[in-house]
Design a protein around this nucleic acid. Structure first.
Length: 159
DNA sequence: GCCAACGTTGGC
DNA sequence: GCCAACGTTGGC
């Protein structure tokens, strides 16, 4: 199966690409997702070796780097922690409800590719991120879209 | 199953 | 802070 491409959205105030870079080995758990559509992607679709654009939302929205999936979907135990920010009492060890993956930082872009700029780029017209009202925090990205954005970043990452 | 009320996301 | 666009909840 060919490698697939994704976009992972995070508010940098909650978890930024610098936070991922600060993790041991640049590997962090993508936890806290509490949306069923996004959960289904984390649990069922993402495979080790898939690449994801790291997107900062809300403050200076833009794509800031690339991460690689290093562990496939497994139960998000933070949902079962009453002290955690995204605690969900419906989640139990028998029925975890929510899932996460582990990702490793591949590169940080020298500068952010802003949402405003991406809206002007030919070939990204149908990108999910650019759709009005797009809120999904885990999104599929086509190989073509991923390649265009990587070219614009100037980074050399094997696709 | 319908749908109004409500909560959240996220750009601006 | 505003508000559009969604997602979720819960009464019926």
């Amino acid at each position: 199966m060919a490698r697939r491409y994704w976009l992972l959205k995070s508010e940098p105030g909650a978890y930024s690409i610098d936070d991922l870079a600060a993790e041991p080995g640049g590997v962090g758990a993508w936890d806290g997702v509490r949306n069923y559509q996004a959960r289904n992607i984390l649990r069922d679709k993402m495979r080790v070796g898939d690449l994801a654009l790291f997107y900062h939302s809300v403050t200076a929205p833009g794509v800031v780097g690339v991460a690689e999936v290093v562990r496939e979907g497994y139960p998000d135990h933070t949902a079962q922690d009453p002290t955690a920010a995204h605690y969900d009492p419906r989640s139990t060890p028998e029925n975890p409800v929510w899932y996460m993956v582990d990702v490793r930082l591949v590169c940080r872009f020298s500068r952010s590719l802003s949402l405003k700029f991406l809206r002007t780029v030919a070939g990204l017209e149908n990108m999910e991120l650019l759709r009005k009202g797009s809120r999904l925090s885990v999104q599929p990205v086509s190989p073509e879209e991923f390649s265009i954005i990587l070219d614009l970043s100037g980074e050399n990452v094997p696709l």
